[in-house]
Design a protein around this nucleic acid. Structure first.
Lengths: 357, 357
DNA sequence: CTGAAAGCGCTAACAC
DNA sequence: GTGTTAGCGCTTTCAG
């Protein structure tokens, strides 16, 4: 029941024979290119229908060299952030006749290297990649050297001569941190899912991860006010509830932060869960800020102050840029995508008892 | 800067020539199949490295007929439900050497028909599809007739002789509705994103959409108690905030429901937003139930009573089943995937004033 | 407009 | 173990 042999379906040759024309003409009629008389077109169409012809697009790729496939490498497809971004890419790609081949890396560099290789071997016309790790770029450089169009998404590795679609967080981040500082916060924790094992300090080379811009913004805001920010409060690898739980334990055990910043909505949920479990109140005990905006953030109490970003648009733009590169169209210069601070109720003054500055 | 011609990269023939062996031997060494002496293997490996050889997997597909690509058609990739499912598929597929080609349909039948056609034309080895609409099955039947392995995901069209991976909601749904009835609810609204324009009644042929099982369960529970459920409270097309807003307006204007059931987390968020905007309190004014479980549902107040389902596992299983079909392995019979009711605080007794039964 | 023929890069017989 | 040969299904020249 499961397994009838996969019937070899009709080929252009079959259709041509049935229609009594040459393979070339049949192909032209089927593919609507070149010159074909109406008579031939009709005969071919009919024969194709009768035989249940279904073109083999891979064979076409063999000769044309174009697959009309965009390779997409994301770090965490189950993250609504990427879900939305992929939707943006998908809509734009389909509209231009491209399809998406999607690989997930789970923030793992080896998986990324692999994914990029597989995708190029499958002859994708171009790649959209969220580079996991600034330290490893050979595989991406190789793609560029091969002349395969590449667009970096969500993160940007500067050494790489490849377009990048990122959102500008500087204004929104400064505004948010300013607000934290103004309301008395001196110890601000930042949780990211980035795969990073080395000890962190402000000079660490995070390269173009959006985290970098955000952490940098955080640091700068402190510096501007002549304050010091504790690098020990910047934490990575927050990719599971267990990881977040451990981080929270650790953070709360010493000189605790008075504010938490979550790098994305998944981390935010985990973090809020851990905080609630420990009866830490927001914003009375600690303030809270998250990147990305989803409707649930307005449903919880207090409503979360967030830094929203145009995720769908970013995905759509990445696909558009890639397609432009593929087709040799000059990239139109568009206005930068800006993140915006949406002030709600999760940032408040530092509790006096907890104040340690 | 954008567009250096894509260099034709080295082929097995090139490698073979450089290594001074035949094309066949080179291919064997490169693909690690057949018999190759260590000496040849080494020479080939070296030549491949020197030339920057990168296999063309499409060419391989041409001869073997196998692409090692799984086609995935989902209705709403930005829905975290599918994000998680796709992650499950992706992990399972990668582990078995398959990659995913993902198309989104936005619950649009034409898009689905298209997606299925494109995928088969791209010679995917099999398909995982969330069938949008029970009324249109020719495209899927055609896939089956072609002998291309197909697994239905999340929904099941019964006429189709294709495996399906769905979650059993009957027990969880009965339990939930029982609870609603017990606490006095007689008017239970259900919101789904399904594309459905006809007027709804309890006999409507929703076929295998999970909605069907859920709505059926709802209806049955009422019938068992000798009660009547109003079909006018079952609403579809809840695919945007605007749509949900309109539905809520309409629902609230007549004889209003005392409980709302959201078919997924996206709808739930929209619905909760609309309810909050209208100052409808939960569970004081209306009770609330949602399908799927994400951490934010425990962060809001009241914590949401939900029907959780093993989404990741379902995705993983769909991929596993498809791969089993492809490779002709007999499908292992596994225990059914069960949804579970998680009782939290969003279901309460009907407010006396609002009671209208 | 139409057709014949030459590949795209790889693998699968089939000999040696 | 190794090499030769013949395609997979399609799209191109390049002639007519």
């Amino acid at each position: 029941m499961t397994r009838e042999a996969r019937r070899r379906s009709a080929t252009v040759a079959d259709v041509a024979a049935a229609a009594g024309v040459s393979k070339a003409q049949a192909a032209r009629a089927l593919g609507s290119y070149g010159q074909v008389s109406q008579a031939v077109r009709d005969k071919v169409q009919k024969a194709a229908k009768d035989l249940g012809f279904r073109r083999n697009r891979l064979a076409a790729t063999m000769t044309t060299g174009r697959s009309n496939i965009l390779g997409v490498v994301v770090s965490e497809i189950e993250n609504p952030h990427f879900g939305l971004a992929v939707r943006g890419m998908s809509d734009t790609a389909r509209a231009a006749g491209y399809d998406l081949m999607l690989l997930n890396t789970d923030e793992n560099v080896e998986a990324e290297v692999d994914a990029v290789r597989v995708l190029t071997e499958k002859q994708v016309d171009g790649l959209i990649v969220t580079p996991s790790f600034p330290g490893r770029t050979e595989h991406l450089q190789e793609v560029i050297d091969l002349g395969i169009p590449l667009v970096q998404f969500d993160r940007q590795i500067k050494d790489l001569d490849a377009e990048a679609v990122t959102v500008d967080f500087s204004a929104a981040t400064s505004a948010a941190i300013e607000e934290l500082i103004r309301t008395g916060h001196r110890r601000v924790a930042y949780l990211s899912s980035l795969d990073w094992d080395e000890p962190f300090d402000w000079d660490a080379d995070l390269d173009g991860a959006p985290v970098r811009q955000r952490i940098h913004g955080l640091h700068q805001a402190f510096v501007i006010h002549g304050l010091e920010a504790d690098p020990a409060l910047i934490r990575f690898n927050a990719r599971s509830s267990a990881a977040v739980s451990a981080i929270v334990d650790d953070l709360l055990s010493g000189d605790p932060p008075t504010a938490f910043v979550a790098s994305d909505s998944l981390i935010a949920q985990r973090l809020l869960g851990e905080l609630a479990r420990r009866a830490v109140r927001i914003p009375d005990d600690v303030s809270f800020l998250m990147y990305d905006d989803f409707e649930w953030t307005t449903l919880i109490s207090p409503r979360l102050t967030v830094i929203a970003q145009p995720v769908y648009a970013a995905g759509a733009r990445a696909a558009a840029k890639l397609i432009a590169q593929i087709s040799g169209t000059p990239g139109t210069t568009e206005e930068p995508l800006e993140a915006t601070l949406i002030r709600r109720d999760s940032i408040g003054p530092v509790a006096v008892a907890a104040h340690s500055g």
